[in-house]
Write a protein that binds this DNA or RNA. Structure first.
Length: 480
DNA sequence: TGTAAGTGA
DNA sequence: TGACGTCACTTACAG
């Protein structure tokens, strides 16, 4: 929780000048009667003597781009005190419980370690991809692929296909999962927790090229949720005494934004009718009634729905769904036949990228992919960026806008409630454990989240409540 | 310091 | 032809 706005980015394609954030943070802190953190490196970098001079230099930059100045004034600068308060508040950690979970993990690790070393027959370093790769490929004759540096690839998707034939691999994957949890989550979280058992992250507004926030020291945006032990770790994040945690999770926000941007009527209709979007896509591409969609069909449709947001190829899809490339190709063709406007959306943004050198989000944030306008060709990596950025970037814009409004209308309005965390499409609050207050916060926050920017589809959010972050219970259906 | 791996959205 | 889904952060190993 040093503060939210250290650091800077100098890539040509980045338009979030962190130095102005430093200036605005300084102003905010001064208004609170606090000491201003000196940004000597930033000052030196821009050849400025003080923050005022730095700010003047920034304003010169912005003078050339009034629309961006407007965007930053309304959506980035007001977010600074919001993030600052989130960092200062921090979240309470049940250290005792976390240590117990750590001990459970330790016991499991020691057990697995013993059996693995026995099978290997020597003191193999299980954390070394080099040693593991050599052992698997040369001793056990597992036909491993090579990485780009010519070593054996031992990543999960590569080796898990042999886990049935080799119990060693199965145990190794468990070993990796447990050691990851222990070192990255249990140990670091304990280490970074204050004497009051509160953990403070730092948010950066200038790390992600899409305009998303990022979280560091520690990163609280990738706390595990899937596995059993992961859930237990998450459950160690608790509400303070007399309070509860409330989370608001946007439902399929990126696909809704895709529907809005592409104006694809079949997709818009599905959202308007409040259907399960993956089932709906499955019904369309497999030409079966909505009610008859099977689990496998829904899974395939889900992969395709997310795949299109990222510009996935038939190769990537075949790998993920374990189907032949031809089948994946056919799925994708059918998808575009079903949702023709999505293909047009692609073409539009690719052209914008060529013509202008950048593309824009809903709120006008730009991402440059070329140094100059008027490009003839686009390579595949750039193509995917152009396709993904408007969707991911717009989602980031909208939740930031909502956070600012929520802070103004809920957090600072004598309602006992504080925003603690943002995980891209998810906001976690700490609220007094009182039904009337909880009800008020739920109504107000949900209203802001869902009406922050009218799309051609409804925006929806799931609301969950709990004493800890690992066991949150849905308190309101998204369709209500 | 770069690479491989794994966690999240 | 070669690559093959976006955006992050952290850990550990090896040079």
């Amino acid at each position: 929780m040093k503060h939210a706005f250290w650091g800077w980015k100098t890539q040509f394609n980045h338009e979030a000048p962190s130095e102005i954030f430093d200036c605005m943070l300084a102003e905010f802190l001064l208004s609170q009667g606090k000491a201003v953190p000196t940004q000597e490196i930033t000052l030196q970098l821009y050849g400025a003597k003080n923050l005022e001079e730095l700010m003047e230099k920034q304003l010169v930059k912005f003078a050339a781009a009034p629309d961006l100045y407007e965007y930053y004034n309304s959506n980035e600068l007001p977010l600074i005190p919001v993030l600052w308060k989130m960092e200062q508040a921090g979240i309470l950690l049940n250290i005792k419980h976390l240590k117990t979970v750590g001990e459970e993990i330790d016991i499991a690790i020691i057990e697995i370690e013993k059996t693995l070393k026995k099978v290997a027959g020597f003191d193999i370093n299980l954390r070394s991809p080099l040693q593991i790769g050599n052992f698997l490929a040369e001793k056990l004759q597992v036909p491993l692929k090579k990485t780009k540096t010519g070593k054996y690839a031992t990543n999960e998707t590569e080796i898990s296909q042999y886990s049935d034939a080799y119990p060693f691999i199965q145990s190794l994957l468990q070993y990796r999962e447990l050691t990851k949890l222990r070192s990255t989550y249990v140990e670091t979280l304990i280490e970074k927790t204050s004497s009051e058992s509160v953990i403070h992250t730092t948010y950066s507004q200038v790390a992600a090229n899409t305009g998303r926030l990022s979280s560091l020291n520690p990163n609280l945006q990738n706390i595990p949720s899937s596995s059993g032990f992961g859930q237990k770790i998450k459950a160690c994040f608790v509400a303070r005494k007399g309070k509860v945690l409330l989370s608001f999770d946007y439902s399929q926000q990126e696909l809704r934004i895709l529907a809005h941007l592409s104006k694809e009527s079949a997709l818009i209709k599905a959202f308007q009718q409040q259907k399960d979007i993956h089932t709906s896509t499955a019904a369309e591409i497999f030409e079966v009634p909505y009610e008859d969609v099977t689990y496998e069909q829904r899974t395939a449709a889900k992969t395709i729905n997310f795949g299109v947001i990222y510009g996935m190829s038939s190769f990537g899809m075949s790998a993920q769904l374990h189907i032949p490339i031809e089948a994946a190709h056919s799925f994708i063709s059918t998808f575009y036949a079903t949702y023709p406007r999505i293909r047009e959306y692609y073409e539009h943004y690719l052209n914008q990228g060529k013509i202008n050198g950048y593309v824009k989000t809903l709120l006008g944030r730009r991402r440059f992919v070329f140094e100059r306008a008027g490009q003839e060709t686009i390579d595949n990596a750039t193509r995917r960026v152009l396709i993904n950025y408007p969707v991911q970037g717009s989602a980031a814009d909208l939740i930031k806008k909502a956070m600012i409004q929520i802070d103004n209308e809920v957090v600072t309005k004598n309602i006992d409630c504080q925003l603690l965390l943002q995980i891209h499409d998810d906001l976690v609050f700490e609220v007094t454990d009182d039904p009337a207050i909880i009800d008020e916060v739920v109504k107000k926050v949900k209203k802001i989240l869902c009406s922050i920017y009218p799309l051609s589809v409804p925006i929806e959010a799931d609301v969950k409540l709990g004493k800890n972050w690992g066991e949150m219970k849905l308190i309101e259906q998204k369709n209500s």
